[in-house]
Amino acid sequence: MADTNKELSPFVTLVSADGFEFHVRRSAACVSGTIRRMLDVQNNFSEAQSGVCHLENLSGIVLEKVVEYFYYNEKHHQSSSVADMDIPADLCLELLMAADYLDT
């Protein structure tokens, strides 16, 4: 909400289809190829300008898990033998689809 219009603000806002907003560190969000391209300053789409990404495909619950994964990935992507993330079984298919969509 606060960090609109600041192109290189270190945080971006991800909005789920049902209106939940997540403030995420830019570097973490860019774990997703789709979001990275969305925010690419050079391409300069509206998302890059506002720093807000409306993700119409994802529900709040899924997005929350996705954001959790972003941080998890950013934290551990260099280290090996890390404990698996806890994935609730009922979400796993939707998460798979989200992963496909977000190119993570």
């Binding site: 969305m38 391409n43 789409f45 998302e47």
Partner: peptide, 15 residues
């Protein structure tokens, strides 16, 4: 004129 466009929308359509 890309700044008028929402990447997410286009991406979703292509998807």
């Amino acid at each position: 004129n890309a700044s008028q466009l929402s990447f997410e929308e286009l991406f979703r359509n292509a998807y």
